[in-house]
Design a protein around this nucleic acid. Sequence first.
DNA 1: ATCTTTCATTCGATATAGTGAATGGCATTC
DNA 2: GAATGCCATTCACTATATCGAATGAAAGAT
Lengths: 260, 260
Amino acid sequence: MKDRSLDTAVKDSKAPAIARAAAILRLLGHSEVPMGLQPIARELGLVPSTCLYVLRALVEEELVSLDPATKRYSLGSGVLSLARHRLQRDPFASLAQPVLADLASRFAVTCIGVEISGLERITAVAVAEGPGNFRLSTEVGSRFPALLSATGRCIAAFGDHALERLRPRFEKLRWDNPPDFALWSEQVLETRAQGYAADVGHYIAGVTVMAAPVYRTSESPSHALVALALSRTLDEEARLRLGKALVEGAQTVTRQLGNM
Amino acid sequence: MKDRSLDTAVKDSKAPAIARAAAILRLLGHSEVPMGLQPIARELGLVPSTCLYVLRALVEEELVSLDPATKRYSLGSGVLSLARHRLQRDPFASLAQPVLADLASRFAVTCIGVEISGLERITAVAVAEGPGNFRLSTEVGSRFPALLSATGRCIAAFGDHALERLRPRFEKLRWDNPPDFALWSEQVLETRAQGYAADVGHYIAGVTVMAAPVYRTSESPSHALVALALSRTLDEEARLRLGKALVEGAQTVTRQLGNM
DNA sequence: ATCTTTCATTCGATATAGTGAATGGCATTC
DNA sequence: GAATGCCATTCACTATATCGAATGAAAGAT
């Protein structure tokens, strides 16, 4: 499978080496094992010599590490250093962390703070796991399609998009139990009315996801507070209380983000 | 302060855009606040137009995020995603984690697993904090000069370097209580003899650091297991037991790394 | 052990990414 | 309210990063 995005990104850009470098980093990230030059070049449709030069530059910057014995490349320690700085400097992550921890322990759920970067993807930037022997679990850096599940309904409800325009993106989503577009639209309106979104078993069977929007500036939400739990541990009454708590937490964070 | 490494890295490379991109990422990582185009270009000695094209490419790849209102750039969520993949795929990090957690709780110390990438820097790739109200703390992705403290003595002792050749690098290190080269050399020999290194208050006053080497292939150590504690919580007897436990843990991890 | 295939790497020709001066927009100052 | 300064952005020229064939080295097959 060739990476389509690479072709177009390289073509129009004035710095195609960077699109190539990023594609290599992503490829190495998704690869189970370190890769040799040739497979990398083949997979991305790059000329091996160019690919080699890019890899060498990335190794030089410690974003990629090279096993000199096997000539295999993998992600380098530099990406960890960058991620650490990114997290330290992210005001949302710092502000959301204590709020998420509080929610996680009070409701015995897993809470994550996500960044909304457009309509494509959301990224987890903070996580807090509740007590209990079995928990749902993610890591910082996990990404999800933006319109999926409860966060998706949040984005649809509080970003000002005409619902019908989101339909093409909506159709591409993968759910365990997909709602049809009519039901989804209804749920989006409901979300708008109550201030938070709930997804009971649609995204993942047996799992309830709830989300409330956080705003950096005004306009559309820049982040969201999300709670995950096994559906059987959250009855309707608990969902109501959790939803209310999520909204309060999200408002707190929004307020704190504003005054900086 | 201009980034010297950039000048040389750009000159000899066949993919200078990548050296520039990496320098921008590092700069944004170290900056307390998001930066505009001009300050970035000035700081790195780049032509603004070039810098703009590089930034645009980085934004496109989500490695940098741009606030459209203020035109300020900061690190993007993509670096988090890369770091997550990096950690998931790192066999050392996965194998070391339980060993570190065990050591941390048994000795009430903070334990970290570090990757040794040459003689310049080491990077924390796994951390485990012990119990207790006050703990020393770091994050995954933190970097330290390679020859510093206990890990430095490990690298000097078990990598096959002539000690005298390490002297120039040694002289540049910053310690709270710097050992002179003679004392340090002696401690390196001691480290070689007992299999682990100890730094009692040299690197940071009042803090004891201990480290044992981990080997991916044979030859020089690729990683190390490190323990940190306030010196007053570790008497000599405890240091001996902890040192022994570190060596055992390091050997376990080394063995597991071999059989993959 | 020899042949074959696959890989990493080098090198010269050329399309193109980088340059720096020029433009237009925004905000702060007088 | 005008003017000044700084900033982000564009554009045409040229140094150079990219390409593709050729080389050498190392597995894998016979």
